[in-house]
Computed example of a mutant assay.
Amino acid sequence: MNGLSTAALTELEREIDAPGDGLDRLRLVPTPFVPEVRLHLAEDAIVWWARMEAAAGRTLPPPFWASAWAGGQALARHLLDHPHLAAGRRVLDLAAGSGLVAIAAALTGATQVVANDVDPYAMAAVTVNARANRVRVQARHGDLLDDDDTQADLLVAGDVLYDRELADRVLPYLRRAAANGTQVLVGDPDRGHLPWDVLEVVASYPVPTTEPSVDSPVRRVQVLRPR
């Protein structure tokens, strides 16, 4: 991890060890649709974010890593139910957030797992969550979307198409990876940016929702791959 991620890790470890409970705290809990994996999640990510920004006196990135997003839950479930997909392979988890999918890949016997995110706090979350699940995951901070070599046999991406601008960058990256021989799997709850002519459905799951501001307790999530 770089210096930003190391500083975020120190802060996150302090948060985890702090006494007390409430909506603005982190808790180590089983993931609803993937109970084999425990994550440090916020009771209420928005409240936690507000307190951390107030304490820091500056704007912090949205804590996407502090919720178990539906796309990542479905993808992690798919890997655990089909362990041959990651076992013995090099895995890259793109926009890893909490590291849920990366941890699932490690649990199935992947030889190397890299979790990537642009948020240093996500890299810190990956580190503490991998530690809690007793697996090894390498945290890689930065934007990979202009790269051409994934250096992975399997690329997994949960809930990466949540807005048009990001989808327009992510999809070409996924297609280049697939064209270079990397197996690609995407977990998506259909946020309206899914190009059906580019991806095809592999599996579908009803996933409990834990992320903030959702209007349904369960979302239908599809696992997809490039055509």
Results as ranks from 00 to 15, higher is better:
Val101Ile: 04
Leu9Trp: 03
Val135His: 07
Gly192Asn: 07
Val186Ala: 03
Thr111Gly: 06
Arg191Asp: 02
Asp17His: 06
Glu15Trp: 15
Arg175Asn: 10
Leu161Asn: 01
Gln138Ser: 13
Gln222Ala: 10
Val198Trp: 12
Ser204Ile: 05
Ala105Met: 00
Asp188Phe: 10
Ala74Gln: 10
Phe33Lys: 11
Pro63Lys: 04
Pro206Phe: 01
Ala167Gln: 09
Ala45Gly: 04
Gly57Trp: 01
Val207Ser: 13
Ser204Trp: 02
Gly72His: 04
Leu85Asp: 09
Arg191Ala: 03
Arg58His: 00
Leu80His: 02
Asp149Asn: 14
Pro32Lys: 05
Leu166Tyr: 00
Ala54Phe: 02
Phe64Glu: 10
Asp197Thr: 14
Trp49His: 11
Leu41Val: 14
Val37Phe: 05
Ala105Ser: 02
Ala76Ile: 12
Asp197Ala: 09
Ala54Ile: 01
Ala130Met: 07
Trp196Gly: 12
Gly3Leu: 10
Gly72Asp: 09
Gln138Phe: 08
Tyr205Cys: 07
Gly3Trp: 10
Asp21Phe: 12
Leu79Ala: 08
Gln138Thr: 15
Val156Thr: 13
Val223His: 01
Thr111Glu: 08
Asp188Pro: 01
Pro62Val: 05
Thr59His: 00
Gly88Asn: 11
Ala8Leu: 07
Pro19Tyr: 04
Asp146His: 15
Arg219Glu: 15
Pro212Gly: 06
Asp159His: 03
Ser67Gly: 08
Asp188Cys: 13
Gln138Asn: 13
Val201Tyr: 04
Asp159Glu: 13
Val47Thr: 10
Val128Glu: 00
Leu194Gly: 05
His141Asn: 08
Ala45Thr: 05
His82Lys: 09
Leu171Gly: 02
Leu39Ser: 12
Leu75Lys: 09
Leu75Met: 11
Leu12Lys: 08
Gly187Asp: 15
Ala42Met: 13
Ser213Cys: 04
Asp44Gln: 06
Leu9His: 02
Ala139Ile: 02
Val114Met: 03
Val118Leu: 11
Ala42Gln: 09
Arg134Thr: 14
Ala76Gln: 06
Arg77Glu: 04
Arg131Phe: 10
Arg175Leu: 15
Asp117Val: 09
Leu199Arg: 06
Thr6Tyr: 07
Ala56Lys: 00
